[in-house]
Design a protein around this nucleic acid. Structure first.
Lengths: 191, 191, 191, 191
DNA sequence: CATGAATGAGTTTTCATTCAT
DNA sequence: TATGAATGAAAACTCATTCAT
């Protein structure tokens, strides 16, 4: 009697609205009723889906940190050369950031002082997986023998810096730019 | 009846207190009375020195962004080789971040959605100066001919990533680490 | 798919759940959805049986105030001596409070600022009936000639105080205790 | 330059306003802004004096439970006869309830489910002191050898019942009524 | 100039009630 | 008739800012 209203799912609508606002104005800079209004629901409704504002931001963080890690690592070409693996990682990062610019901004351009244990655990597990890739490449003597954490911090930091430059309008995120950036950063870490 | 240190300068005390709190909890996560209390002044007094909370954070941003730019660029060895100049820039960044970790965290680890024009202008003028260095090095064919903004975004992003890794405890900011990082990033951008 | 007990009567289930919660946490301290959940029905269902939260608490009050009055007065031994009648009343009060401790607590240990006219009328009619007993005993010169309302207030207040002492853990409601209390209070009012 | 405005003290004004409203409508039935408005202050001001609504009600409870205990026990005539001591206690209770009817109603006519440890301790220490009086009278064989807690529950309950009767309009709190009540209750407990 | 109590609009959150299913 | 998601007004509480002292 009622054609599927385009409400997909209120929980999802709330998550999407929150993402946009948190990415733009930060967690503390965004009021719950603003999120609710942007999601097209009443303020009280938000609390049927999330126990608190903090629970909401953690759910958001876990959803997208998980998506990012999954995008980076699912079906990772474990048998390829380090150079090829690096290309793959950088390319996947670029694709994720191109398709989900607000999500990436939310994840990486903000200082998250309110994360719960589950969120922190997810963060750390991602680090571990990447560390494995770095150490394997080092074992194959295809990557400089610096501390794995240092290499990861520099490479990931460089990528985030690139995205920040795009967000601020200094750069435009194109395949060519990504490719150039990849080449530079590979030079930084190759043997 | 009053044993506080000679009240150096209340404005300065407020700026220092605000810096610590903003770096830790962010702008919106910090209450003005907290800042005042931490500075050892009354809440009303803060408003004699700053028109609003936003004016305070902008003053802080300009103070330290200016200090950072000044640290990077004053007496810059314009006649040295690009490699030497890069070393100098990286070393100065490292020294600044080592001496002023909270200031650096405030400047670079937060998303500043409240900056006024003066702050934005300062940000941009810093970029211009660094761009000049990159372009000169490229003119000397000592640095790859990529877009200057790309090189700056990657290098500065890598440095910020390094500091974030230190802030999160994955790394420890030592001269050796800085030196290793410098070497890697130079490889990224040298011809 | 549904193993709840034969849903006796939803109205009754709601009343029972409300009683427990109102007795424990008070009317304003209890949320309607909590009552519904405790009764095993949906929140909306409650409103099929009671027009509002106030209607619910008044129905509850009337149900149990009525039950208490009925327990006190049905088949009252009108021909017995005043002493015997007092014994009967005290004993019936004790039995009611023993069998229905939460009901008694709800009725007498809370300040009911929301009673409607029907509830107040019930309260008053109970008073009238007891007043008759007192006045008859006084006419027979078996009870002191104080104001009937005074005697009732003291005796009933003493009983409530006894129950409050039990609820707080100072006393334990045993037949022996009730009997001792009865004896003391009879001494208070006998000629 | 400004003659002492009749604000006595805002903390006191808040306590007084809260007392009236809590006595009438109960703790959960009273909204904080109502208390503030009745006290003639802004809602936020209340929180400068009390950390929370619960802290307010506990402060109120302790203030008046303390006043009641003090009224009962300060300069207690320890050398008088038990009968005389009972008269004194009853009289003091009556005077307190006459002078502070709302305070007494707040203390004794509500179910306080939110008391903190300090409040509970105060309650218990009052009980202990009164218990001492009962036990001494029993030792002198001037009071029936029932459990002290029972005697206290009945006598105090009777007094509360009397006040409840007055609050509901059945009785009027006069010296004569108090005196009559005292005589009845003494008969209950004397040997 | 400095203070800090006071403000009241704004925040997060709750809850009595409704209504589409 | 029963449901329970949705509502939105109201609750408790916070905080940027003001102003009398």
């Amino acid at each position: 009697m009622k054609f599927r209203e385009p409400v997909r799912d209120k929980r999802q609508a709330i998550l999407e609205a929150a993402l946009v606002l948190f990415a733009e104005r930060g967690f503390h800079g965004t009021a719950v009723p603003e999120v609710a209004a942007a999601a097209g629901v009443a303020a009280g409704t938000l609390y049927r889906y999330f126990a608190s504002k903090e629970a909401l931001v953690n759910a958001l963080y876990q959803q997208w940190k998980g998506a990012l890690l999954s995008a980076l690592l699912s079906d990772f070409p474990v048998d390829e050369s380090p150079r090829q693996q690096f290309h793959e990682l950088w390319h996947r990062l670029g694709r994720f950031a191109t398709r989900h610019p607000q999500e990436f901004a939310f994840l990486e351009l903000h200082h998250h002082a309110y994360l719960d244990e589950a969120s922190l655990k997810m963060e750390q597990s991602g680090m571990q997986l990447l560390k494995g890739f770095v150490e394997q490449a080092q074992a194959e003597q295809a990557m400089r023998p610096a501390r794995a954490e240092l290499i990861m911090a520099l490479v990931y930091g460089a990528f985030v810096g690139l995205l920040k430059g795009c967000a601020q309008g200094y750069l435009k995120l194109t395949p060519a730019l990504l490719s150039a950036a990849e080449q530079l950063m590979w030079e930084a870490i190759r043997v």
